[in-house]
Design a protein around this nucleic acid. Structure first.
Length: 610
RNA sequence: GGGGGCGUAGCUCAAUUGGUCAGAGUGCCACCCUGUCACGGUGGAUGUUGCGGGUUCGAGCCCCGUCGCUCCCGCCA
């Protein structure tokens, strides 16, 4: 007989009755009747009821076990009588009558219960993550994550992709997020950076002729957390392909994503091709570059109606270069007054000065603003909004950017409050035609709006002839239910176009050579046209597991302050290590550049004296 | 860096307007119980109400500060 087990805890059935078996696992729950004792023994696979009768020789050994003790039982499989069958357990037709037991791992009193899916403080859950991971829901999520990744590998390999590894210790990239830095011992004062994404490496693999690349790539960014953004590190399904257009990349994702989502969820999944929405349209209609298409509401421009109306607040907004936008909500005229007040308060908390509304009910308009408007204006609104009796329109007026931003939030709030969002579907869309450049709000300069490696639409000619702000890029996002899964782009693989693009953004060729020397050198020695995309693995699994928080699909996540409460990271290190790295930690509030320089000078003197 | 929410027993939470409010469930400990499956029953122990200060005759409750967690803004090419 095996040292620990002949069967797993989900295996035994009626047909096994009479066999002597050995099973091991955690004591999930104990029901002690004074005479007979029942134990649910749990392992990764399931649960089995163990019965200990008073005449069993292990009955006396039951001193000090607690829930979550790891134990091994030898006993005979017994078919349960019909009255005692437990239909909730896979193994509920049988039980194991224990003859011998062995404690394999003691358990102290638990900081929280494993057998109950009871909420407990996240800090505690993170500190005792190994316990939390035993709980059913989290355990299932992590297994799903494993299976999703395994399926991605299977599908992509089948589509001719090869999986690669790229360096974890690399150099700091001048663009993008804050880097995590790793000091070099061999080169004191110099630093490696952890990759924010293997962006340049995957492009170089294309230049190297590998044609189709993918990697379940760890990415490191020193930025603050959100519910859907784990600080520190996360995983991307990083992909890159040569000799492709934007449509080719879309086709791969439109095959891959429905396959994955259909396999791991029972929700209805959009079929290919996914809707494509130009960036500007997304901002204008949904007030977001990651619209949740489950929400049927959208904004429309009604500035023309109010431009000359008697409603001065709106007319003035239009005269001052702003716009008025409307969100039509069908059939909610019966909502109480409080609903409108709450929505207005919400809009104000989102940054609006106010929000107006008109209710079409029983053939007439009801609203505080109606008295300022002409019949013709009201009729025009009705026509623009294709209004039926019972419909309501909400209005926001201000500068376009603000109206879009607030309107987007109002749209989401209305969708949530009114239950307009179908929880049983996955709605995908591509956001395309991102602008190549934008104006920096502080300096007024032209800057890259996404990443400098994207190919401008129209190529060199567009860069030479068009207003930079009108140039679009072959840059796209894929969005699912309002969650941005991924950004991608057809890359700029031509050095001449690259230099020109940087010139538009105010950088000379020397800067390009200095910052992206490796890439430019590669592009000068025969680079294929290429492009790619990198869907977030954590976010995909989060959607599939129907979890509102990304930490629920990561085995060992950081908390929001980028700490690992279980491993106690980050932590101070030995003085010896710091000395080797030539690093002196400074006290936390370091307010002045001068303080820093003084300390640097002192450190220099000290090291000379040594 | 900024804003919101939360912080009462190991855990989940309650405590009316500032006045017998230091409480329940669960867990823990002890005992009882031979068919439960979240077993049941009896009894018991457990609190710096996150921390510090203030207002008050009196603070879990109000005020100020601080710490922790979380959500959001900034940030995330």
């Amino acid at each position: 007989m095996h040292r620990y087990r002949t069967h797993k805890c989900n295996e035994l059935r009626k047909t096994d009755a009479g066999k002597t078996v050995k099973i091991s696992g955690w004591i999930h729950s104990v029901r002690d009747h004074g005479g007979v004792i029942f134990i649910d023994l749990r392992d990764h696979y399931g649960k089995t009821q163990v019965v200990i009768n008073p005449q069993s020789k292990c009955y006396q050994e039951l001193d000090r076990w607690r829930p979550e003790t790891v134990a091994c039982f030898i006993g005979k499989v017994v078919e349960r009588i019909p009255e005692t069958v437990n239909p909730k357990l896979e193994t509920g037709d049988i039980e194991v009558a224990a003859e011998e037991m062995e404690i394999l791992g003691d358990a102290d009193v638990l900081p929280f219960q494993v057998a109950k899916e009871e909420q407990s403080p996240e800090a505690l859950r993170l500190k005792y993550r190994f316990l939390d991971l035993r709980r059913e829901q989290l355990h299932k999520n992590i297994i799903m994550r494993s299976q999703v990744i395994s399926e991605i590998r299977r599908l992509l390999t089948g589509m001719g992709f090869n999986e690669f590894q790229t360096p974890i210790l690399t150099s700091s990239s001048p663009e993008g997020a804050r880097d995590y830095l790793v000091p070099s011992r061999v080169h004191p004062g110099k630093f490696y950076a952890l990759p924010q994404a293997p962006q340049q490496f995957k492009q170089l693999l294309m230049v190297a002729g590998f044609d189709k690349y993918f990697q379940i790539a760890p990415c490191f960014r020193d930025e603050d957390a959100r519910a859907d953004r784990s600080p520190g590190e996360f995983y991307q399904l990083d992909m890159e392909m040569s000799f492709v257009t934007q449509d080719d990349i879309f086709a791969v994702l439109e095959e891959l994503l429905p396959a994955i989502f259909n396999k791991f969820s029972t929700k209805k999944v959009d079929t290919a091709p996914f809707v494509r929405i130009p960036y500007r349209e997304a901002m204008s209609k949904y007030g977001s570059d990651k619209p949740d298409l489950r929400n049927p509401l959208f904004m429309q421009d009604v500035s023309e109606v109010f431009a000359n109306s008697g409603f001065n607040a709106f007319a003035a907004a239009v005269k001052n270069g702003g716009i008025v936008k409307a969100i039509k909500v069908p059939g909610i005229a019966g909502q109480p007054r409080k609903f409108y007040d709450d929505m207005i308060a919400f809009a104000q908390s989102a940054g609006a000065k106010g929000m107006a509304y008109i209710i079409w009910s029983n053939g007439e308009e009801k609203s505080p603003i109606v008295k300022f408007m002409s019949r013709a204006e009201l009729d025009k609104l009705k026509e623009l909004g294709n209004i039926q009796d019972g419909d309501v329109m909400f209005f926001l007026a201000d500068k376009e950017k603000l109206v879009n931003a607030v309107g987007g939030q109002v749209r989401t709030e209305l969708g949530n409050k009114l239950g307009l969002i179908d929880k049983n579907v996955f709605r995908f869309c591509w956001i395309v035609d991102f602008p190549m450049f934008e104006t920096d709000e502080e300096s007024g300069q032209i800057i890259f709006s996404h990443n400098p490696f994207s190919m401008p639409q129209g190529g060199m000619e567009a860069l030479m002839t068009k207003n930079p702000l009108d140039i679009l890029a072959y840059q796209y996002d894929i969005v699912c239910n309002g969650v941005e899964l991924s950004s991608g782009a057809i890359r700029n693989h031509r050095p001449d176009v690259m230099y020109k693009a940087f010139e538009v953004a105010g950088y000379g060729p020397a800067t390009v050579d200095e910052r992206f020397g490796g890439m430019i050198r590669a592009f000068k020695l025969g680079a294929p046209p290429h492009g790619g995309i990198a869907p977030g693995v954590d976010r995909m699994v989060m959607l599939l597991a129907d979890e509102p928080n990304i930490r629920e699909v990561i085995a060992f996540p950081f908390n929001q302050q980028a700490q690992d409460l279980m491993m106690n990271a980050p932590a101070e290190v030995e003085m010896k290590q710091l000395r080797e790295l030539r690093i002196i930690p400074l006290p936390h509030p370091l307010k002045f550049e001068k303080t820093f320089k003084d300390l640097q000078e002192e450190a220099r003197k000290a090291s000379v004296e040594e």
